[in-house]
Design a protein around this nucleic acid. Structure first.
Lengths: 251, 251
DNA sequence: CTAAAGCCTCCCCTAAGAGGAGAGTCAACA
DNA sequence: TGTTGACTCTCCTCTTAGGGGAGGCTTTAG
């Protein structure tokens, strides 16, 4: 089944002009050109168009989109990357919304907001992305974990400690999603194992130390964002679990 | 206090070029021009800039923004309008995210999605906004509820206390998603308000009591499930926040 | 066989800045 | 006091992602 420009346009809410444009710049080539010179698109092209639109939604320039699609022919990889980016965008909106509400509130009270808070959430997104990746650098160094990759995980080329940390984080996230209580025996087991591992690898850490550390994560932007980026609420869940373990340990 | 272009730029993450541009088209005039021709901005201009940025975030063309700000000098009205629009935008992202996940899933299974579903969520936003507002008209009429506010909640048939609780929970969830720290001033404010409300309605509750109560939620299946059902991680976040408030209160 | 609807190319236009040249200004330090 | 480095100004051209529309084929439906 082949689609004409009008049909594609109706399906995708993209104008015909845009299709022309994408053709001209080589971003989306028609499957076939009819005798009369009509552009005809197939399913594959529709899929590619979808990918393009995901990126466009995130305000990527078209030539960047082209490169991205070219250098990563794996559909699955593109999609999970886009999911991450969309989540980041949602986060941005969330933050802006918060600023807006704060503005409404202080406006109502007739107060002045300070000039910094007025613009929270508007940092340019690339700066954000960079901050995100810098942060990852830092964490990779500090923790030896690359968190961006947390989801599918390239286990084999991580070293043992990094792999353990990543697996640990993953399991914590999973437990939270599964609704496991923070004080559940299984969680305690999980934390204990992690502690044991750390102790065996040159990081002397008691349950109390670990609890303190996780409490610190709640205050620290880098760590908080990293944990919450993997799973919303995870930082708090982890802190609660660690505290519960430390309390047990104590008596 | 007056700010130079550089200072405004740093505060707001807007380039100097953009400030020049906004000056030229009369969207944001400097409060004052120095002898040497330097642009100087005051607090009022910063606020106006904030409003502009909210609209810009929503991809409004600059001349439209100008008109909007001109014809509605009431700050409060502008802000609540913008809140609605941002909520709509969040919804759009949510929908696109859903489409994306669906694509990932069917991709994994090696299935083809139908060509319609491929593009759900990409309808042009104005059409979207219109649809949204029509729908709202309808709902407002039929149900006497303005649905754009707070997704779940039939406010009118809840009593006051239930409504307060629901709103409170909603805001907590929102803050968690926004990455607000559990010990942030805003969170404390939120909890304090909630406590005040409870105290005014016959539930004597101190900050410490509340902390204990939220800690109990973590152990109790019913409450845990209810909270986690609304937003993963929320129970733990709330407990951390309550504890932080109680600690504050104590000293 | 004719009209309406669809398609093509080609050309010019626009919005929201970015980049950079050339020149004046400000603060701080020697 | 002079100088240097960071800021600022205006003016000009350039870019991106299309939109509008003219002029001219093609396809479909009656």
């Amino acid at each position: 089944m082949l689609y004409t420009v009008k049909e594609v346009s109706n399906l995708s809410n993209v104008t015909i002009k845009t299709l022309h444009h994408y053709h001209r710049i080589g971003l989306l080539m028609p499957r076939e050109i009819s005798e009369a010179g009509y552009r005809l698109y197939g399913m594959e092209e529709l899929e590619r168009l979808q990918h393009i639109l995901f990126y466009r939604e995130l305000d990527f320039p078209l030539d960047t989109i082209k490169e991205l699609l070219e250098e990563e022919p794996e559909k699955a990889a593109i999609l999970t990357q886009q999911e991450k980016l969309l989540l980041a965008r949602r986060q941005r909106i969330e933050t802006i919304l918060l600023t807006l509400r704060k503005t409404i509130a202080s406006n109502k009270k007739g107060e002045q907001m300070n000039s910094q808070d007025l613009f929270k959430g508007f940092e340019s997104e690339d700066a954000w992305k960079e901050a995100m990746s810098e942060q990852n650098q830092y964490l990779k160094q500090a923790y030896n974990v690359d968190i961006v990759e947390a989801a599918p995980m390239d286990v084999q080329d991580m070293n043992e400690q990094a792999a353990e940390a990543a697996r640990f984080m993953n399991e914590v996230a999973q437990s939270l999603r599964a609704g496991l209580k923070h004080s559940d025996e299984q969680m305690k087991q999980l934390l204990s194992n992690h502690l044991m591992f750390m102790n065996e690898h040159g990081h002397q850490t008691s349950a109390a130390d670990f609890a303190a550390q996780t409490r610190f994560f709640l205050q620290d932007d880098f760590h908080l964002r990293m944990l919450e980026g993997q799973q919303t609420g995870m930082a708090y869940y982890l802190a609660a679990a660690a505290e519960s373990l430390a309390a047990d340990d104590n008596q």
